[in-house]
Amino acid sequence: MTILEVKGLTHTYSESSAAVTDAVNDVSFGIEKGEIIGIIGHTGSGKSTLVQHLNGLLKPTAGTVLFKDEDIWKNPKEIRKIRSKVGLVFQYPEYQLFEETVYADIAFGPKNMGVSGDELDGRVREICNIIGIKDEYLEKSPFDLSGGEKRRVAIAGVMAMKPEVIVFDEPTAGLDPRGREDVMNIIKNYREASDATVIIISHSMEDMAALADKILVMNKGKLELFDTVENVFSQGERLRAMGLNVPIVTRIFAELIRRGINLPENVFTVEAAVEALKKLKEEDGNA
């Protein structure tokens, strides 16, 4: 089932805008329910602008965004409803924390959606359980937490709305390796618990290779590629021309193949690479 469909989406910014912004030009694609989509593209390629259309934060200059076959802008007054169906976690989401306690901050989203009482309490505790926020943290001020913990709480605040599609804009930016691993695990855990559709913007081809089903490549406001991880990462030259690259492991394999070693090209993760090399070694041993 196609859960989100973008048709001919174009967005141009007026010059007066204070922010440095990037336009989107005639982009169309569809996302199936339950898929994990990675979005890659260099800074200014239009990826942040694109995802802000998926939950109606931005209104298309032209084109439509369909959620379950219905135009999200069909009734502009109801646009807020889409925000609980398509959750969006911004870059550095910890800067959105404002409540006195972690609990209240996580409850902010669902409360805005009209959830209250036991259901609200249940939602907050359920999400904390899934992504590992301990009970003793709930009454703390979010401002007393460490950087990584703040981000976890901020992400929980969006997840507590139980969105069917959840979009992350560079969820690991600025974190150290442990923090990054934590965030990637939170995303995996949430997906397992909720079968939500996940969209992630990232600069890390390695993370994309490990996590995504399909990759969407943006370049200069246009959709350049939208295909499986294998089909996207097999086009190294094209990606490099856009200032992107393939995962490091794939680059190492390309170099080994160039040296005349008989290895497959479609290797994107460390695990796959070890397997491929082991296989090669065994074949050599048998020969």
């Binding site: 150290d176 492991v249 460390v270």
Partner: peptide, 17 residues
Amino acid sequence: GLDVPQTTELLYALNQN
């Protein structure tokens, strides 16, 4: 807790195998 590049990661995994 350091960020080990994937090149190092691969070599390390190979050594263990």
